[in-house]
Design a protein around this nucleic acid. Structure first.
Length: 455
RNA sequence: GUGGGUGUAGCUCAGCUGGUAGAGCAUCUGGUUGUGGUCCAGAGGGUCGCGGGUUCGAGUCCCGUCACUCACCCCA
């Protein structure tokens, strides 16, 4: 094929979409920094052994190889070589853990950072699932210990950050692993992970399917019923605590988990609103990995099928160098997962395809320097301007701007004077490039949100 | 990795039981030698994903392959 085909799972946006994405990232960054999170960027590649620690060999990691690598180097003939091989990072948490260990002596704890970067996963792409995508992470990590109130803070920061984004309303779903583990232990469950795995499938296979799995995991019928009742508890405030108590299960972990979840829900509720709602949702378990306490997930209204667009939680040992362990709590927003489907459905776009606010028309090629001075005068005052590409008929020059959604065309007169036309209304006024300014809302491309699917 | 679906113009698609490739939109040009969008006229653009097979003849039927896509798995 003469024309290259797109690579599945490696999305590339058009300029207008990229401008939207950049504004979203800028917005996140603004919120994160206002809460004191420091920016870092970690390298794209990590030793394979680092990426796959804890025997997580099922992760679909992209392996990196030099074209001229030696045979032994390429094949990874022994364990040492394999560990030395490089892979593209699968998330931002593992590289961050490595970074914390590496720089522990130079960082001050508790250390709070944000990180917005691409990550790579070799899984089969689907809507909202990519092989190369952007994540925005915040984490707070302590040396030795990390007070619980940071769990509350993480929920608050992300609630505020998400509320500022031009996306459909979101629901932050909160739960606590101690709560559900304590509950299962109180019920006498022996294989707690199996129970969690079963309950986690509630959305997919329904209550009856989950019951079968629970019975298979060794639970008695009454205990299975109790698990399903627990998983059915969803409240917008801390009233979930009474409903859990009403189930009559006793365990110390359970009580601790309830107390923690109450604190997170109450704390986040202060910052919630129409754009981001808060729920205590006791079916949320978050896979089986390193989470130990608070867990977060987020669903987007009308796009619930995408799954969670922002999730994370508490992990007792983010990193450990043997002598010290570093507990942390963090959450990750899926920038590409959220924006991609909205772009595809035409629900999110930019008011124009380029940053340009004004095209300076070019009456004849010899006037290019004069026109360039007009553009420079506008630019000096923060108004993005470009000179028309050729001295075509003015009709064509106007069309050049129109095609790109550029709102203004400047027809030069003497020096910096001229007349400027709003090509949407057709209104044209005399102006001077030394002091004319567009309306505030036209200065930069705006994000346009469409409520329903458009075309 | 497993299973289904789909590959024809830049985009959306038509193309009958095999008979020499079409439409709409978009693009470009002109009507309109300095103020666009409407309208009219015209033009460019396709190894029908790729390879093989059946046939006098394949976009069409068969096999393979690749890509895209949906679901499972997993997850942002």
């Amino acid at each position: 094929m003469a024309r290259p085909a797109p690579l599945s799972g490696f999305p590339e946006w058009l300029p207008g979409q990229r401008m939207v994405e950049q504004q979203v990232i800028d917005s996140l960054r603004g919120t994160f920094e206002s809460w004191g999170f420091a920016p870092i960027e970690t390298r794209a590649a990590e030793p394979l052994g680092e990426l796959l620690r804890k025997g997580e060999i099922d992760k679909e990691v992209y392996v990196l190889r030099r074209l001229h690598a030696e045979e032994s180097e390429a094949a990874g003939t022994d364990a040492t070589e394999a560990a030395r091989q490089l892979g593209l990072h699968f998330d931002l948490t593992v590289p961050f853990a490595r970074y914390v260990l590496e720089n522990a002596g130079k960082l001050q704890f508790p250390f709070r950072r944000y990180q917005v970067q691409k990550v790579w996963r070799g899984e089969r792409p689907q809507e909202g699932r990519y092989r190369e995508f952007c994540q925005a992470d915040i984490d707070i990590v302590g040396a030795g210990e990390l007070p619980f109130h940071h769990d509350v803070e993480i929920a608050q920061v992300m609630t505020e950050a998400l509320a500022a984004l031009p996306v459909p309303p979101l629901t932050l779903q909160l739960n606590n692993r101690r709560l559900i583990e304590g509950f299962y232990l109180g019920l006498g469950a022996e294989d707690v992970p199996a129970v969690m795995r079963a309950v986690d499938k509630l959305d997919k296979i329904g209550p009856d399917g989950v019951r079968d799995l629970l019975l298979a995991a060794g639970l008695k019928d009454g205990a299975a019923t109790a698990c399903l009742e627990l998983a059915g508890i969803v409240t917008a405030d801390s009233s979930f605590a009474d409903r859990v108590a009403a189930l009559g299960v006793e365990h110390e972990l359970l009580n601790q988990g309830i107390a923690e979840l109450v604190a997170v829900v109450d704390g986040a509720a202060d910052l919630a609103g129409d754009r981001v709602r808060i729920t205590a949702d006791l079916r949320i378990a978050r896979g089986l990995d390193y989470y130990t306490g608070t867990v977060y997930e987020t669903r987007m209204e009308s796009l619930e099928h995408l799954g969670s667009v922002c999730s994370g939680g508490r992990y007792e040992s983010l990193a450990s160098d043997g002598a010290h362990s570093y507990p942390g709590v963090g959450i990750s927003f899926g920038v590409t997962r959220t924006l991609g489907p909205l772009f595809a459905r035409g629900r999110l776009s930019a008011s124009r395809d380029v940053p340009t606010c004004v095209v300076v028309a070019l009456p004849e090629e010899a006037m290019r320097p004069a026109c360039a001075r007009v553009a420079a005068a506008l630019r000096r005052r923060g108004i993005a301007a470009e000179v028309a590409p050729s001295a075509a008929r003015f009709g064509k020059q106007i069309r050049y701007a129109d095609r790109r959604g550029i709102p203004f065309v400047w027809f030069p007169g003497e020096g910096l004077s001229g007349s400027v036309k709003d090509i949407r209304s057709g209104e044209q006024v005399e102006a001077d490039a030394a002091d004319w300014a567009p309306p505030e809302q036209d200065l930069r491309p705006r994000i346009v949100v469409t409520d329903s699917d458009g075309d």
